[in-house]
Every structure is written in C-alpha cells, then in structure tokens.
Amino acid sequence: MIAAESFAYKAALREARLIRVAVWVTLIAGFGVTALIYAPVIWLGVLSISVDPLAGLPGAFTMRWYGSLFTSTGWIQPLFISLEVAVIVSVLCMVSAMLVGRALPRLKHGRGLLLGAFLLPLVVPGIVVGIDIFIYYKMFLTFKMGLWSLVLVHFIWAFPFALIGMLVISSRFDVRLLEAAADLGAAPWRRFWDIERPLLMTGVVTAGMFGFMLSLTELPRSIFVAGRTQTLPLFTWAETMSRGSHISLIYCLNTLIAVISVALSVLSVWLLGRRVKS
C-alpha cells in the first residue's frame, strides 16, 4: 500500500517536473521567435544613431543622421504622398467598415458568403493582388496608375482588418436598443445618430487607425500599381534595392515610422480591448 502510494506520488512529481520543463521550453521558443520580430526594429533604432551604421558593432553614437533629414529632403515628397493615401484609405475604411460592420451581423441571407468575400484579401498574397490589379486596370482597361490605384490596393489590404475591428464592436450591439429608441419616438436618422453612432464609435476609430497604419507601411502591392507615384515604403525599397548611399537616412526615417506605428497600434488595440471588456 505504502509502496503503491509512493510510486503514484513519484509519478505525479515526475509529471509536474516534465510540465514545468515543457512550459519553459515553450516560453523560450515563443518569446525567442517574437524577439525575431522586434530585435531588427530595435537594431534599426541603434543603427540610426550609429556614426558608422555599416560597421558590424556600433561604436560611437550620433544624432547627425537625424539632422541630415533636414538637408537631404528626398523623403518629404514620398512622405506626403504616403500620408495623403493613408488618410484617404483611413476615411474609406471608417465609412465602409461602419456601413458594412453595423449591418452584417443583422443580415438574414448570405452573411457567411459576404464575410468570406470581404475577408478574402487576408489569404491572398500581396503580390497576387498587386499584379492582378495592375493587369486588370492597366492592361485591360488601360487606366493610368497613380494615387487612386495605390488607394485601391491599400484599401483592399486594410479593409478586412478594419471590418474585423468594427465587427468586434458591432456584433455586440443590441439591436433592441433601436426598437426602444423608435418606441420612444425617435425617427430613423435620430436612432442612428443617438444610439448606434456613439455605441459603434470605438469600432469606427479602430477601423480608421487600422486603415491609416496598414496603408502607411504597405509595400508588396504598391510596387506594382504605383506608376510614377512614390510612397515612403517605395522610397525605402528603392534605396534598399539600389544600395544607395542614403542608408543612414533610411534607418532614421524608418525608426521614426516604427515608433509611430507601434504607438498607434498599441493605442488602437488597447482602445478596442477596453471597450470589449466594459
């Protein structure tokens, strides 16, 4: 009896130890891979203040390169185009995510089909979207590529994310509140403005932020449809591929963009999470 008990006890101990080891291996591997995302971004920041960014180990540090952003101004034009595209995409995302997101949970027919069609770009590689949009609009319809085509592909990329952000909020919206408002005498527009708009606002803001950030940093699709227009990621890309001498400038610029992106995405995910919890 005692022997059996101690055997079971030992087995349990062994099991617990095994699980503890497994958890540690999991965490080291998981956080290790996550580090593969962030280490380059942090290193980007380190290189941006290195005197010699091409030397293996960073030695002396300087803010000189950030200063050179003011003298070497090739990035300003692309930045403004990027911002212009991002703002348009952001607004498009807000409006369309609002219109589609509020109605989708209430649709009776074809809800799954529509959702599938809207989320399709998530599983179509960017390069396919880029080349397909180019072939259709440029080769078949012979449209001139430019700002509008950038807006289009960025919107295709961003809309699924914006819609998901919106659906997180709108699928929790209680349609009976609209009946209650109607019952109290509110006309359709009034119901939308007083009840739906404030309750769905977080979703709309999130959709807009997603749209803005995804557009600001989009590259694989832009490569095909930019025409003569150059966005900031395209500028970085061109400098990278031509192995130009502006590498420090690129590091500085992208460090700034990364800081803004991280701040904005943390903010929007936090906003969404806070709203869902309350």
């Binding site: 509140l177 019952d183 109290l184 009840i195």
Partner: peptide, 20 residues
C-alpha cells in the same frame, strides 16, 4: 404608422436601456 409615430411606449423584457 411606424413605431416612432405611435403614442405607445414599451417596457422591454430586457429593458433595452441605453448603456451609454
């Protein structure tokens, strides 16, 4: 006549109070 033009008011089963 739609609901908003009728002189009735409803106490809903789950109250449907406006949470905001």
């Amino acid at each position: 006549l739609p609901a908003n033009h009728r002189e009735v008011a409803t106490v809903f089963q789950h109250y449907a109070l406006f949470p905001h």
